[in-house]
Amino acid sequence: MDGLMLDSERAITDCHARAAADLGHALPPDYWLQMVGTGDAVCRARLVERLGEEAADALLARSGLLYEAKVDAGIPHRPGIVPLLRWLAGRGIPRAVATSTRRPLALRKLEKAGLLGWFDAVCTSSDVAHPKPAPDVYLLAARRLGVDPAHCLVLEDSPTGVRAALAAGMTPVQVPDMLQPDAQVRALGHRIVASLDEARRLLEARLASA
C-alpha cells in the first residue's frame, strides 16, 4: 500500500522530519529512509534506540498528528495504480492489500484515497503475529483470496516487502519508490521494474503467452 499505491512514504517521512525538527532533534534526512517498509513497532524501536523512549514517543505523537491531517486530505496515488487496478479487475484477477500499517489506519487511507473498493481483501499488521519481512500478512492475503501462495504475484516497493513475499513462496515484482535496491537486494533474484505501468505491461505479456 504505502509507497506502491499511495505516495505515503514521502508523506510520513516528511511528518517525522518536521516533528523531529519541531522538537529540536538534529537527525539526518537519510535517517528516515530506514523506516520505509517497516511497521510501527520497528519504527518506534529504532527511534527509542536513537533518542530514548520518552523522546521517541513524543516525536511519534507529534508526527502522528501531522500525518492524520494528510490522511484526511487523501494521500495522492502513485502513478499508474488506478489503470493497473482497472486492468486487473477487468480480467477478474483477485486482488488483496498486504500492508504493515495497522488496520484502522490502512482502511481509512485506502478509503480517503478512493482505492478501497478495488480490493477483495485488506490484510494488515493488526491481523497477524509477525510483520514483514515475516511472510504472515502475505500468507493471510492468499488464504482470504482462496489462492495458493505459489500462484500469487506480489507488487512491492520496499526490500522488506520483497523478502516477505519470497518467504511466503510468492513471486515478487519490485517497483522501487524512495529506496533503490542495492546489490544485496538485487541478489535476491526477483524482477525489478521502474513503474507500475511497466509492471502492468509485464502482466499483459505473461497472460498473452499463457
Rank of each mutant, 00 (worst) to 15 (best):
T124I: 09
G161W: 08
A69V: 14
A164M: 11
E68W: 09
V175R: 04
P176R: 11
M178H: 00
K132Q: 01
P79Y: 11
E49H: 10
Y67H: 08
D57G: 01
V82S: 07
V154F: 05
T101P: 00
T160H: 10
L84Y: 06
R103F: 07
L59H: 01
S125K: 03
V154K: 00
L65K: 15
R163T: 09
V128L: 11
I81K: 04
V71F: 03
M178L: 15
V128K: 06
W118H: 15
S100H: 08
L88Y: 02
W87G: 06
V71L: 10
A73L: 10
L115W: 09
E53P: 04
P133H: 07
D127P: 09
G146P: 08
R62G: 15
Q174P: 04
L84I: 08
C123T: 08
V128R: 08
D157R: 09
G74L: 15
A106P: 06
L110G: 05
A121D: 13
V128G: 09
R86G: 08
A58P: 02
S125P: 06
C152E: 05
I75N: 00
P172V: 14
P83E: 12
A164Y: 00
A168S: 12
E54H: 14
A121P: 11
D72W: 05
V154S: 00
R143V: 14
R50K: 13
P83I: 11
S158D: 05
V48E: 00
